[in-house]
Nucleic acid binder design. Sequence first.
DNA 1: CGTGTGATTGACGCCTGTCAACGTCTGTGG
DNA 2: CCACAGACGTTGACAGGCGTCAATCACACG
Lengths: 237, 237
Amino acid sequence: MKNIPSLDDQAECLTRSHTLFRHLSDKELTGLQNEKLTEFHRRGTVLYHEGSRINGFYCIEKGIIKVYKTGIDGREQIIRFARKEDIIGFRSILSHELACTTAEVIEDAVTCYISGETLINLVKNNGNFSIELMQLTCRELGEANEYITDIAQKTVRERLAEILIHLTDEFGLDDNKILRITLTREELSNIVGTATESVIRLLSEFKQDRLIELSGRKMKILNIPGLMKVGNLYNYK
Amino acid sequence: MKNIPSLDDQAECLTRSHTLFRHLSDKELTGLQNEKLTEFHRRGTVLYHEGSRINGFYCIEKGIIKVYKTGIDGREQIIRFARKEDIIGFRSILSHELACTTAEVIEDAVTCYISGETLINLVKNNGNFSIELMQLTCRELGEANEYITDIAQKTVRERLAEILIHLTDEFGLDDNKILRITLTREELSNIVGTATESVIRLLSEFKQDRLIELSGRKMKILNIPGLMKVGNLYNYK
DNA sequence: CGTGTGATTGACGCCTGTCAACGTCTGTGG
DNA sequence: CCACAGACGTTGACAGGCGTCAATCACACG
């Protein structure tokens, strides 16, 4: 959790190559560079808890963060994952609300932290930055609406197939077609919104149907069009 | 659909009493007043369709609009309702995407239309407006996340009870405790994400349990705490 | 080697979606 | 004024998807 000096220099996230920051002036950019607090977080670390006050936002430099809400009986509902170049925590700052989600590291991560005050100043003073951030937020909102529709209308089987496709898109496959994100069965069930046992049963059905291959938590994606068919994703991308 | 001059003068939505516009300068405000196109829309009118390009946004002056996505088999999923002072359509403008929802009038409405260009100029040039709009968007995003969790984790029965509570909060009850929004059974099912028949059955169970009373589409809310209990809404408001 | 977490499998039953039939109400046209 | 169509609401029957509970296995770690 402590600030490691050498990390600050390596961190590349707050530069113009990042869409969000491309319209910043030199001054604004160096301001961010000087202010930023680069941290390394091990798997399992919680960046912030649902219900807590957040005073800044995180830009992910490396690793994977899962963002979830806690629902009935403490059951977690994963809302999204954040990875390189994604930013998290800004929502609560801008809406002046407490954090509505918990952010937990699931793959060792490096993040840059910037204060909320700085963010608000940027929004107020740099119109183009404002537009970029607004775009980001609006896209997220569009995705959330999409997700609502899917979850409300699709069966668990369809949703699971869809999630596998989304994960493939977002994190990609390695040379052996193995998904570049590792999730427990329980985490998968907390994305889909179902019981762990159901995920296990459906995954082995997918395996029987030669759509995927399993070896522990490693998942090999064999047949993307097949999965899309199961997930009812006809006009996707 | 045509512009009725007298309406323009009555319309009050683009004023400083509206939170979103409270930081506008006199000049910006009169600009909006001059530009705005006030329209009356009868029930059933569609303001814009999913997948179409939107060139401006609507501020609702009066009436109710349902905002929905079209999912599997053309089944509609209602995302939210917009009423007095709500604005719709700005998301697509800011994210430079096609409309991801359809907006349909379900109670005769009066709206003010403002071009997207004007909106973007305001965001770019007025930092405080920018912040207000960002807050709005971020709140919506927070609500969407909430909704995702509910829909993924709750049973249809719980969700229906919850929706009734939400509708009560948003639209209120008249002197006879009758909900101030009228929906068909099918529309209710399209919010909850279930079959029409299920809604009908659950509603009559709620009626038997003295939680509500029904007479056609009019719904009397008898026992709010009871509904909250059914909907698992312990720490709500 | 004991302990704990995660994965798997089976049994069981309820919630909920689907299909079908029928009732109700409203508006339209002859 | 009546017949009819069409949209909406209601009820019943039925099957199956999926959640829950319980037992067992696999694996990592101190």
